[in-house]
């Protein structure tokens, strides 16, 4: 799976979990906060994305991430580990 595909998964889950956001308008260099996500929304997006990608990353490792792109990098790390 490529990083672009991972970003698509994250974007789809953002659209499903937040009101009034369209996938095309999401810029991966930004934080989900900019699209109106609160901390609970972000947990939901991350959990549902991880489920779809079949990976499991401890929440404690995700606390420091700043934007969608960094989240995708983190996901890639775990996808490549298998």
């Amino acid at each position: 799976m490529t990083k672009e595909e991972v970003i698509e998964v994250i974007k789809r889950n953002i659209v499903e979990n937040l009101d009034d956001v369209e996938a095309d308008s999401i810029d991966a260099t930004k934080s989900m906060k900019e699209y109106g996500a609160n901390s609970l929304d972000m947990i939901e997006v991350v959990s549902t994305s991880m489920r779809e990608l079949n990976i499991k990353i401890p929440r404690s490792e995700l606390a420091e991430l700043g934007n969608i792109d960094e989240l995708a990098d983190k996901f890639m790390e775990y996808i490549n580990k298998g």
Partner: peptide, 12 residues
Amino acid sequence: TDFSLADFHLND
């Protein structure tokens, strides 16, 4: 021990 109760909310 890296995991916590924060990681198992989603139940599939």
